[in-house]
């Protein structure tokens, strides 16, 4: 596999195109959910809850590497289920009105890219934190990868509440009609 940032960029681009097809009105609903999830995960990290959950797994007497794999797997499964639920079936749309034309396409592309960044960035952050389990990364990170690690959804802001601000503003706009 190539550098991990290539995978990150690819996911962002794929979600950007999904966003341009679905439209910004639907993608914004997903963004609200993802921003809150990122904030909650960061909130849990800041309070050491995920460390405590990992400690709890030690009762089944796992070695360090296996513990990292299981913790990463659990976080990824929970996060992926939330992502699938937000896209599948009855979705939390921001608005039934669709932005059309060039600017509508661009808006869908932008919000889709943000969603891709939140999803791929969160998974990358936890993969890095749990030392790339399941052989996700075989060699060292490139300098670009090292730089990007400081700009992932969990690391770009000094605390969890930063993601809550745009999510709450959008939620208020969604509720007040």
């Amino acid at each position: 596999m190539g550098p991990v940032e290539i995978l990150f960029y690819t996911v962002v681009v794929i979600f950007a195109f999904i966003g341009s097809v679905r439209g910004a009105n639907r993608e914004l609903g997903n963004s609200i959910i993802f921003m809150y999830v990122v904030a909650i995960l960061r909130f849990a990290d800041e309070r050491g809850w995920s460390e405590r959950a990992a400690e709890a797994l030690r009762i089944i007497d796992l070695e360090g590497g296996r513990l990292n794999e299981i913790t990463f797997l659990l976080i990824s499964i929970v996060f992926t289920v939330i992502v699938i639920m937000s896209y599948q079936g009855l979705t939390f749309d921001f608005s039934p009105k669709r932005l059309t034309g060039f600017w509508g396409f661009l808006a869908g592309l932008g919000v889709g890219a943000l969603n891709g960044y939140l999803i791929a960035g969160t998974l990358w952050h936890y993969a890095d934190r749990y030392q790339y389990p399941f052989g996700l990364l075989t060699g060292p990170l490139t300098p670009v990868g090292q730089t990007l690690l400081g700009y992932l959804p969990q690391t770009i802001f000094p605390n969890a509440m930063y993601w809550v601000i745009p999510a709450t503003i959008l939620l208020i706009l969604r509720i007040i009609r």
């Binding site: 608005s95 039934p96 932008g110 930063y162 601000i165 009609r177």
Partner: peptide, 24 residues
């Protein structure tokens, strides 16, 4: 970080504002 927050919030608001109030 503050500039990133402002930028992300401003861009999302710019996109969300024309869609506001259309469900009613």
């Amino acid at each position: 970080a503050g500039v990133w927050l402002l930028l992300i919030t401003a861009l999302l608001l710019l996109i969300a504002w024309p869609l506001r109030g259309s469900a009613a």
